[in-house]
């Protein structure tokens, strides 16, 4: 049986119908056409599907699409300001903090949530804050440094 949902994605009103068993990640990727969030595991372990739901960082694979009525979700597609990349995105590129890129949207959303709560995190706080995101390529150091550089720029 399908559910009809009215929600807000990256500030835009969006309507969709989905099955009860479809995750928010399925809905974003297959029904709304936003393929930035990735499915690494589907069980909350890798963070590749991270989005910000009503201000909180969550795994979109652990949210039902049906739950989205009246909610507001931020995805990686809403991070840049038009053609101007967000400082986090720019520093990931400048610092080569990605290789295959599959984990990157999740890391960027998690870093975004972290810096909103804590604009000046220590290296340890960054590592703990991003512990729910797995990367099989970079070895994490460049990611941590990119977040530090972006945080610095954002503090001005």
């Amino acid at each position: 049986m399908g559910v009809h949902v009215q929600t807000t994605i990256n500030g835009d009103a969006v309507e969709f119908a989905c099955g009860v068993d479809e995750s928010l990640l399925d809905v974003l990727r297959n029904r709304v056409g936003l393929t930035g969030a990735k499915e690494g595991c589907g069980t909350g372990d890798c963070g590749a599907c991270s989005v910000i739901l009503d201000g909180r960082l969550v795994c979109s694979c652990l949210v039902l699409g049906a739950e989205m009525n009246g909610k507001s979700v931020e995805t990686i597609e809403g991070m840049a300001d038009g053609n101007v990349l967000h400082p986090l995105q720019q520093h990931f590129i400048d610092g080569a903090a990605l290789q295959c890129g599959v984990c990157t949207p999740g890391f960027l959303m998690a870093a975004q949530a972290l810096l909103r709560k804590n604009p000046d995190p220590t290296e340890e706080e960054i590592r703990f804050g991003l512990a729910g995101n797995l990367c099989r390529c970079t070895g994490y150091d460049k990611i941590v440094r990119a977040v530090q550089a972006a945080a610095k720029e954002m503090r001005g």
Binding site: V58, L62, A131, G132
Partner: peptide, 9 residues
């Protein structure tokens, strides 16, 4: 419990 993402829920 879990990650920051899991704690969000």
């Amino acid at each position: 419990i879990g990650s920051k993402q899991v704690q969000g829920r």
